[in-house]
Design a protein around this nucleic acid. Structure first.
Length: 582
RNA sequence: CGGGGCGUGGCGCAGUCCGGAUAGCGCGCGUGCUUUGGGAGCACGAGGUCCCGGGUUCAAAUCCCGGCGCCCCGACCA
């Protein structure tokens, strides 16, 4: 350790706020170069290499074949898929010396589809899965939390190709299992949630979340039936109000009542009997969103319903130009706007809606009879406490870090990029695809986020930079000699050793050992030698035990193996404890 | 993209409001001696374009203008 590149820190840079960020900096594992851009120092690099090895093993287990694809892509490929235009400023673009449009890869569907178009010609070439572990650059509007959200990052991305949807579905399940195994081998239990397909497109998507307060995604979970979804896409059961005979539409004066609560109070009806109007602009088009008064709009779902990537709330000026009266807006008789209704609206009879005239509302508004929408969709925002869409029990809200994400892409890329094969009938078919990603650095940060205490990191054995941390105290020759022999013997036994041979005080060495968080610590000192050997202590435990010198290697090898076995996903009892306080 | 904050030796900060002295403190770093079981003591020492550019002034870390960088909240986002 006297020759380790990097130095641990007592004080933390003030800008680091999340525990994993602080500890990664203090342990000299990462160094920031710019916003969301980091160098990996030796300790981090070793840990990342172990994570990569686990990920690669699990990919190989599900018949993956490792490849490498370029980081720099010509724009033409992305023009074919349409994403040159549909992806915004998170993709870095530049020109080569001849002025050709180029880009830094944000993901590799285009490149891999190009490979498939070339090499896959027959159903006999399917299914296949390829993966790589490689750098991506996404110019995020805001990086944060150390390695949790960065602009340049290492990702394992995998792509599978299938002759049929049935084949895709079967394989996708295998991949989900492989993902769960991967995270468990890193000591983390993932929560699999339904997710937004985002810029990838496709039909279904799942995220693998570490549940933690430091997470940046909001999740809705049903403890009763296991339903779990990212709040971007979560749905909720909206109990329809009791059926009623439609009453005639009638205009009533509601002076000064411009809010849902105000109108509901004034007219003595529950908010579930009102119609809320919300306005957005999608592209250039004004969108009139009608939803039951007690519900909120999920903008993510709305964007999906509109098939538009860019939506924003409409300004008052834009509303005025469209002849809409804020506070009294009505979907009845509205022109020059696309009308979207939440599915809660058709189910509710005799609603109170605006009259599109200041100071007046309409009662007895019924969908279908009085107005119709251009789009009818589930756009309601699910919140904690809302009923679960599958079983009705209350949903619980929590936060999570997205460690992995899988997408059923279908033919979205193969059709636009002409990746086809001949089926057994001799018919030309588009290849059916899926893609799967794991953020390697983010997984390291997630593990630290989950496994740390007030003193430092508590590395799971499987991803620790080293297996054993030897702390030698004092300058005595027999201490140095014993530590050196143990070091050599352990390495000969396949154990990775970090040896603290610095001329520092005991306190400094112990603090650093706790900070770095290698699971096993061996102390060699005059005192330990006098007591018959060396001291072995688990990072997780406050107790240590003496090992005679001649049996130390064997004991350490055994204990290391037990720690590894604890992380075996085949074991039902795998577990690790950690605290989330620092 | 909206809101807030910060830029002073490697790290954490003070000084800036109200211009003026050799730019200071703690940690870390180097050398020597004494220490060595939970961030040791003493002594000496090295290390600064006070983010950059321009302006005001006899005088700018400090005031003014412009820029750059970073962090946090939100929007956004695999």
């Amino acid at each position: 350790m006297s020759r380790l590149f990097g130095r641990t820190m007592r004080d933390v840079p003030a800008r680091a706020t999340t525990p994993s960020h602080r500890l990664l900096l203090r342990a000299a594992m990462i160094h920031q170069l710019g916003a969301g851009i980091y160098s990996y120092m030796p300790l981090a690099w070793r840990s990342l290499a172990k994570i990569e090895a686990i990920v690669a093993e699990e990919m190989d287990r599900v018949d993956g074949q490792r490849i490498g694809m370029p980081v720099v892509h010509p724009a033409d490929l992305w023009r074919k898929s349409g994403r040159w235009d549909s992806i915004g400023r998170e993709m870095a673009r530049f020109h080569d010396r001849d002025g050709h449009d180029m880009l830094l890869a944000v993901t590799h569907e285009e490149v891999v589809t190009d490979l498939v178009a070339y090499y896959v010609t027959s159903y006999r070439d399917l299914p296949r899965m390829v993966y790589q572990i490689q750098t991506k650059f996404r110019d995020e509007p805001r990086s944060r939390g150390g390695l949790i959200r960065v602009r340049e990052f290492v990702m394992k991305d995998a792509y599978s190709f299938h002759p049929s949807y049935q084949d895709l579905d079967v394989y996708y399940e295998r991949m989900v299992e492989a993902y769960v195994r991967t995270f468990r081998r890193c000591g983390l239990e993932p929560l699999v949630v339904e997710a937004d397909v985002g810029m990838m497109g496709g039909s279904a998507s799942h995220e693998f979340m570490l549940v933690t307060d430091a997470g940046e995604d909001t999740l809705l979970i049903c403890d009763a039936c296991g339903y779990a979804a990212n709040s971007d896409v979560a749905s909720t059961t909206v109990d329809p109000p009791p059926p009623e005979e439609p009453t005639p539409k009638q205009e009533v004066a509601t002076p000064g009542r411009t809010t849902i609560e105000g109108v509901a109070d004034y007219l003595g009806v529950p908010t579930t009997r009102t119609l809320k109007a919300v306005f957005y602009v999608a592209g250039e088009e004004l969108v009139f969103v009608a939803i039951r008064g007690d519900l909120g709009v999920n903008e993510q779902k709305l964007a999906i319903a509109l098939q538009s990537s860019e939506i924003r709330p409409a300004s008052d000026q834009e509303l005025g130009e469209a002849g809409i009266v804020p506070g009294y807006a009505s979907p009845i008789g509205v022109k020059n706007a696309k009308i979207v209704v939440d599915r809660s609206v058709p189910a509710a009879p005799n609603l109170v809606a605006g009259a599109n005239r200041a100071g007046f509302h309409l009662t007895g508004v019924n969908y279908g009879r009085d107005f119709r929408a251009d789009i009818e969709a589930d756009i309601a925002l699910a919140r904690g406490g809302d009923p679960c869409p599958t079983c009705g029990a209350p949903l619980r809200e929590t936060r999570g870090i997205e460690m992995g994400h899988t997408f059923k892409l279908g033919t979205r890329y193969s059709e636009t990029m002409d990746a086809t094969f001949l089926d057994s009938e001799g018919e030309q078919q588009p290849v059916i695809m899926a893609s799967y990603g794991i953020g390697i650095g983010r997984l390291l940060a997630s593990a630290i986020e989950h496994f740390h205490d007030d003193d430092g990191i508590l590395f799971p054995a499987s991803i620790s930079p080293y297996d054993v941390h030897i702390v030698e105290l004092g300058e005595a020759e027999q201490v140095r000699e014993a530590a050196s022999q143990l070091h050599v013997a352990l390495e000969a036994a396949g154990v990775e050793v970090l040896r603290d041979d610095r001329s520092e005080s005991a306190g400094v060495k112990f603090k650093d050992a706790d900070l770095i968080g290698i699971p096993l610590r061996v102390t060699v000192s005059p005192r330990s030698l006098k007591n018959g050997g060396v001291e072995l202590k688990r990072r997780l435990s406050s107790e240590s035990n003496m090992l005679p010198l001649d049996s130390a290697v064997g004991e350490i090898v055994d204990l290391r193996q037990r720690l590894m076995d604890d992380l075996d996903p085949e074991r039902p009892q795998w577990s690790h404890t950690g605290s989330s306080s620092e």
